[in-house]
């Protein structure tokens, strides 16, 4: 009714006010610094029928973290957290190695891996949504026990040599289609599917509503428990996909050390992407940027030639800097500091 025609805000103003600007800026800065560290950093050529170079590597290596982070973004949107994603990856990887040894069809095995992730999500979701256990505790259970479950699965076939070959799975993980690494194409497909589920249905709105205020959402007719449950299942499924990519990548199931600390990287990616642990908002695209920032950072440390003792410190410092940039408050303080006067 009040169809007031609003003057469209200038593009540059919208960009500078957007919260997306800071993580993207951080990514650009990291890549520029890389150019100084390594002169041929931006070279991209074709090797073994696929694109090859540092920039491709960053995207390529960021895929598993980004997949996990997308699931994490939804769980965090409900004001929850999933610490068990690394363990879910270990379990789905162990199932892949086991079923390949057992001689199943590899397409079916892919389904097993993803379903296993989903079932882990069902477990987490049940504990959080229906038994009312705090998310950090509920998912800690699977985080602690999941890698043991993976080792037990390895023991099913003796556990001496959990390595395997699979043209299909390795094709998905390390192969390429028309010069482009398959996992990047796979990621894009999964991202679009997830985006459709979250943004083209009302699921995303419900998740944000439940995360923002569960009591109010219930009174608005949303079944908050079911939404929370579903978010953990989605997170598990995403970890299942990541498990397939990581396991096929190394041709082996290594439940003890695969994807160690990936939950922390995933949470960081969400936060760098503008998500808040207080819940209430999901930024899928920005979460992917967050994962790219983390991977770009990791790759630059690897090529920097710095002794490995510095890795974690540098990572921590850069992440801190990105988060400070994102905080309106901190930015104002920094600006005030430079101007040498108290900001109004």
């Amino acid at each position: 009714m009040s169809s007031v025609s609003q003057p469209s805000t200038p593009v540059w103003k919208r960009i500078s006010q957007s919260r997306a600007i800071w993580p993207i800026l951080a990514l650009v800065v990291i890549l520029i610094v890389d150019g100084f560290i390594s002169p041929n950093f931006y070279n991209i050529r074709i090797v073994e029928g696929r694109l090859f170079g540092n920039l491709i590597d960053i995207v390529y290596r960021a895929v598993p973290t980004a997949l996990v982070a997308l699931g994490m973004a939804i769980v965090i949107g409900t004001k929850g957290i999933d610490l068990s994603v690394g363990s879910i990856i270990a379990i789905s990887g162990a199932i892949i190695a086991w079923r390949i040894q057992a001689g199943d069809n590899h397409v079916v095995i892919l389904a097993y891996a993803v379903i296993a992730g989903g079932l882990c999500g069902v477990w987490n979701g049940t504990l959080v949504a229906f038994l009312g256990i705090q998310p950090i505790i509920a998912t800690l259970i699977l985080m602690v026990s999941g890698r043991g479950v993976g080792m037990l699965i390895n023991l099913i076939y003796g556990g001496t040599d959990p390595s395997f070959e699979s043209a299909f799975l390795q094709g998905l993980s390390t192969g390429s289609i028309g010069y482009i690494p398959t996992r990047i194409l796979l990621f894009i497909a999964i991202f679009i599917a997830l985006w459709l589920v979250v943004r083209k249905t009302a699921l995303g709105l419900f998740v944000e509503s439940v995360g923002g205020n569960a009591a109010a959402s219930n009174l608005a007719g949303i079944n908050a428990r079911r939404i929370i449950f579903v978010s953990y299942v989605i997170c598990g499924v995403m970890a299942g996909w990541a498990g397939m990519i990581m396991t096929a990548d190394t041709h082996t199931s290594d439940p003890v050390s695969v994807a160690l600390y990936i939950e922390l990287d995933a949470i960081l990616a969400v936060v760098i992407g503008g998500g808040s642990l207080m819940g209430g908002r999901i930024y899928l695209g920005m979460t992917v940027i967050g994962a790219l920032v983390i991977q770009a950072l990791t790759t630059s440390i690897l090529i920097s030639g710095l002794p490995p003792e510095y890795n974690l410190i540098i990572k921590a410092l850069v992440v801190l800097f990105v988060l400070l940039l994102q905080s309106d408050n901190a930015r104002k303080q920094i600006v005030a500091l430079f101007r040498g006067k108290h900001n109004e």
Partner: peptide, 26 residues
């Protein structure tokens, strides 16, 4: 000429070697 931690894991070794390949021009 280059040293990095691969955390004793296959995944880590692969990741580090990929970076070495780029930084040392194959």
């Amino acid at each position: 000429v280059a040293t990095q931690s691969g955390d004793f894991t296959t995944e880590g070794g692969k990741r580090v070697m990929e970076a070495f390949i780029k930084s040392t021009n194959n």
